[in-house]
Nucleic acid binder design. Structure first.
Lengths: 214, 214
DNA sequence: CTGCTTGTTATACGGTTGTGTAATTCCGGC
DNA sequence: GCCGGAATTACACAACCGTATAACAAGCAG
């Protein structure tokens, strides 16, 4: 009776992308428990069996999705440096501010990230993805700090990078979970003044909030 | 054939406590998905049906478990203030240091907390528990900051409390997820110096690491 | 020592999960 | 144009999920 559903053949790259995005979408809106193979397939517009054709197991898809998430977040943070000014303070200020602003900070990002935390602690492959992206971000931060016009011993640089990264992480957390608890722009002001205080540099005055293109 | 399992009657308080602790234990070690009614009952040494006798639904048990977790964390942080010195700087230093040290920071705490994040964002009751405990912690921090021997406008106090809380949260995060990435005592040093820098106060010199009782 | 309350166990049920496997149909190469 | 391979669908399966309900027994009141 029932006709077999018609379909189109797609490239492997495209299908994997669709499935990963569908998985992330579901984790963001409904938690890890909502990201079942059937729900993922449904959102991606395919049937559940296809998942097993591109990912040997559901865990593989989970790993790929997490990898994609972290990659996206670091990309978003670093994107502002592409056309950033050459003044070291302004560069740092821009990078720091972007890390606590959309799209890095939004209502779903923390929930998304939190959904993977447990797997990160258990799964070796996911732990490596985490370490790589986390340290890459912190190293980028340390690099920007080292470029500041001041003298600081190397050992101090590491601790300053850890501290500044902690401020960013904490504000990212609070800003995402409790967005209505802060006034617009308040988090950016706080991150600039506190990072500036930690480093002994005035960042707020060098920061141009946004280059709102016409 | 099979004998009915023998059992002991317990008080309601005791059974609820056992079930809550079993649920937290499972979430910590295996994520939310591992905390099934059968697994919880098994760990608590009872049969699954008993859960529905003390909690109308599994969601009720989840709420109770989250409430218990947050309560425990704030209690652990505030405990160090019981016999703390009267010097405002020393009090703040002790409180801040305790917030990034065991038992608040340990390998399972973040995974445990992360497991509930999604429910917090969706469930109103859990959101209220979160806001209450989060703001209680931040207010306590602000209260300690306000007691410092210096003059600061009220509006500034709020932002300083947010910033210091962010540092603590960020270090709590990193220290729990990546414990081997930091040397012993390093996180405490960092939190004291950075919080001190944000507030313009020297905290590190007033901090007595631990009162190792004989 | 007997009876009653109720804490606790036992069992059942419909729905869902991840996975394995066979049947189809799309689509490029000839 | 059709043919073969592989992308995709369809179906089956055992295990597990949360929930509902009935049977049992533990321990206190008398």
């Amino acid at each position: 009776m029932s006709e077999r559903r018609p379909y189109r053949r797609e490239t492997e790259e495209r299908r994997r992308e669709d499935l990963i995005l569908a998985a992330l979408d579901l984790v963001a809106s409904g938690g890890v428990q909502a990201a079942t193979v059937r729900a993922i397939a449904d959102r991606a517009g395919v049937t559940p069996g296809l998942i097993r054709h591109y990912f040997q197991t559901k865990e593989d898809l989970t790993r790929a999705a997490y990898h994609r998430l972290m990659q996206q977040m670091t990309t978003d943070s670093a994107a502002v440096l592409d056309d950033a000014p050459t003044d070291p303070r302004a560069r740092l200020a821009r990078f720091v501010a972007a890390s606590v602003s959309p799209p890095v900070v939004d209502i779903t990002s923390v929930g998304l990230w939190a959904g993977f935390v447990h797997d990160v602690q258990r799964d070796v492959a996911m732990r490596e993805v985490h370490n790589a992206t986390y340290l890459a971000f912190r190293d980028k931060l340390q690099e920007l700090i080292a470029a500041l016009p001041r003298t600081a011993p190397v050992a101090q640089l590491r601790r300053e990078a850890i501290a500044c990264n902690a401020v960013i992480d904490g504000l990212w957390l609070e800003g995402s979970i409790l967005p209505e608890g802060f006034e617009p722009g308040e988090i950016v002001e706080i991150v600039l003044s506190s990072v500036g205080a930690i480093l002994g540099v005035d960042l707020a005055s060098t920061y141009t909030p946004d280059r709102t293109p016409a």
